[in-house]
Write a protein that binds this DNA or RNA. Structure first.
Lengths: 140, 140
DNA sequence: TCATAATCGGAGTATATAGTCCGAATTAAA
DNA sequence: TTTAATTCGGACTATATACTCCGATTATGA
C-alpha cells in the first residue's frame, strides 16, 4: 500500500528526482530510467509521458532521445508535482473518511490532524527539485 | 481517494467511535449504524464482522442483537485499530515508494518525513476511544 | 537515404479493493 | 412454539488502479 500518494505519483516523484540528479547528462532514455529505478520500462514511460503533457518534463523522440526536466528546478516543488497528479484531496479530505467533516462540523480527530497535515504540506512546498541536483550535494 | 488509511479502516474507525458514543444504549444494529453513518448496511456489517474476529467489538445475533464494544475504551487507541486492519506499513514505508529507502540509504525526503510520521503515530497512539464517550464530552 | 533508437499512444490485461446479494443460523419475546 | 429481528458467511459483481503489449511515429547519424 502507498502512504500518502498514488503509485503513479510516487513513480513520478522518483522519476523527476532522478532526472534532476542526472540533468547534466541531457536526455535520458526510459530504458535507462527503468533500469536504475527498478520499475517496468513501459510503466515509467507511460507515467513520464503524462508528465510531459503536464509540462513538467520534456521528451525527445528518435535516436539519442529521452526525457529531461522542462522547468527550472528551483521553481519546482514536490508539492507542485503532487498537486498536478493527485490533486489536493490528500490535504483536504478527512483522515477518517467522513464526507461531512469540516471546520464547522469537525470529526473526532479533525483538530489533531490539522497541524500534521499542514506540516507535511509545508515540507513538500519548501522542498524543491533543485535540492537534488548534484551541485547542491545529493545522496543518491 | 483515502488519506492515510484504507477505506475499510476508515469505516472501522467511524464505526468504533460511533459505538463508543452510543455505548450506554447496549447493542446497536447494523441497520442503525448504517443509517447514522450513511454507509451501506451490508458493507458496514462486513467490516464490523471482521472487527469481531479481531476481538475489538462484540456481536449478538437474534432479536435485539447488534454490535457493541468488546474492550475497555480507555485501553483502546486509534493506533491499535489501525495496526489491526492496515498493519504498520503506513508508518514504515517510504513516502516516495522507494523499496530500498531506510535510515542507512535514505530517500531524498526521508529525514524530513520522519518527524511528521512520528507525530501522526503519537497522535493516534494518544487518542483513545474513551475520549469519544458522551461522559467525556464528545461533539458528534 | 537507410538503419537504428527512441518516444507516442491506444488498447488491452491483471489485480486489489470496494461493495452487493441473499440464504442460513441464532436469539428474544409474544 | 412460533414469529420477527438480527448477525453470519459465502459467493458474487463493480470499479479503480496498476501494469503490459505493440505498432506507429519521429529523429539522429553513418
Amino acid at each position: 500500500m502507498t502512504v500518502l500518494f498514488s503509485r503513479k505519483c510516487e513513480y513520478a516523484l522518483q522519476g523527476i528526482l532522478y532526472l534532476a540528479e542526472k540533468q547534466y547528462m541531457g536526455n535520458i532514455s526510459a530504458e535507462q530510467i527503468a533500469t536504475d529505478l527498478d520499475i517496468s520500462r513501459d510503466f515509467i514511460s507511460k507515467t513520464l509521458q503524462s508528465l510531459v503533457k503536464d509540462g513538467i518534463i520534456q521528451s525527445h523522440r528518435g535516436k539519442s532521445g529521452g526525457f529531461s526536466l522542462a522547468r527550472d528546478p528551483n521553481s519546482m516543488s514536490l508539492l507542485d508535482i503532487i498537486l498536478i497528479i493527485d490533486g489536493n484531496s490528500v490535504f483536504e479530505s478527512c483522515v477518517l473518511g467522513l464526507p461531512t467533516c469540516s471546520a464547522e462540523s469537525p470529526c473526532p480527530v479533525h483538530d489533531k490532524w490539522g497541524p500534521i497535515r499542514e506540516a507535511s504540506r509545508k515540507m513538500l512546498e519548501n522542498t524543491t527539485v533543485a535540492q537534488f541536483q548534484p551541485t547542491t550535494g545529493s545522496a543518491y
